[in-house]
Design a protein around this nucleic acid. Structure first.
Lengths: 196, 196
DNA sequence: CCTACCGATCGGTAGG
DNA sequence: CCTACCGATCGGTAGG
């Protein structure tokens, strides 16, 4: 996972992993039985790390807009803590496999749909609770929250400068502020407005 | 460029390129003299394409907020037109080299700083013209405009569905709307507010 | 631009 | 887990 988060899943070869853990190539091979399975099991292991380091703490907040904000912050914190040395494992995977075809591309697409779907679901709940404006398009707001998380990951990793994470934090704050339910006032223009 | 936009610059090998253009490996080698130079010249060629397909049309709009919006739209249009078969060449490069070290990482960092710097510069001009709120942090707004462009590129490529580009368009519209100069009214909460 | 080759590394297999 | 090997491919060189 560490190697793949830096160099990509394609850089994770059986021979290289063998050198890294100091056993023979066929010793590594015996554990995974093919390069494809090594890659698949690495993705699966990273998924469990993401669950433990992002989803669990993020979803621990009380239901509603607090949980939406908490999940975004959990992602930014996971970047900040350097859980993987190359930044977000799945952002890397997205860049590597978005334009290819095959089982890994399809798995990446499924994971992305799951992540965006989760954000959307939390937003809908916050709308039902009257915290977020029901006029806001939940899919659009999910996109607008996800976008700064992704860019903060890439620029923080590229620049080796966690200051960029504050850009992400501020963007999330602003998008949520713009989507808050009007308190008796009239609806105003802002992010994720449904009247486009 | 086409190959690298799909499989990454690492997938662009001398042997593979030789097969693709149907000459011998050493025939390709003679043109570039090393793999590093092949990669560097490919990045440079893609930079010229980006200039022609994004910067030139984007910067053709009149100075001010129109030019900011026009540059964002030029980027989204470049994705939509499929200028590279694997989506934005430089987004791919960002994902591939953000966590590595070496000359290509450094070149990618310089290109990213240039792009973000250009956005920031156009925003500052729009503020000086009184079109965008001078209270807005121009670096923050540049980040908030860039983020949806990047995510729209990745998700459009991943899903093979240009509908995601509309999410990007709406996000750009919303961020710019939230940063417009108040017309005699008081400042209100919104994206990229400086009072964080 | 070519053929012919180099040492290294790839995924994978045979046989233990 | 190992050694020893397979055919393919890598970047690169020699010599034309």
């Amino acid at each position: 996972m560490r190697l793949a988060s830096i160099e990509g899943l394609g850089g994770l070869t059986i021979g290289r992993l063998a050198r890294e853990v100091d056993i023979s190539k066929s010793g590594v091979f015996a554990h995974f039985r093919s390069k494809e399975r090594l890659q698949q099991e690495t993705v699966e292991a990273a998924r469990r790390v993401f669950e433990r380091e992002v989803l669990e703490p993020g979803l621990a907040a009380p239901e509603g807009v607090a949980r939406v904000a908490s999940l975004c912050e959990a992602y930014l914190s996971y970047i900040e803590r350097g859980v993987f040395p190359g930044g977000c494992f799945f952002a890397h995977l997205l860049g590597e496999f978005d334009a290819r075809t095959g089982p890994i591309h399809d798995e990446v697409a499924a994971l992305q749909r799951g992540w965006v779907g989760l954000l959307e679901e939390l937003i809908t709940t916050a709308q039902e609770r009257g915290e977020l404006d029901p006029e806001v398009d939940s899919g659009q707001l999910a996109f607008e929250l996800y976008a700064p998380l992704e860019l903060a990951n890439f620029l923080t990793t590229l620049y080796r400068d966690p200051a960029t994470l504050e850009r992400g934090r501020e963007a999330v704050r602003a998008s949520l502020a713009g989507a808050m339910a009007p308190e008796g006032g009239s609806s105003r223009a802002g992010p994720a407005s449904a009247d486009s």
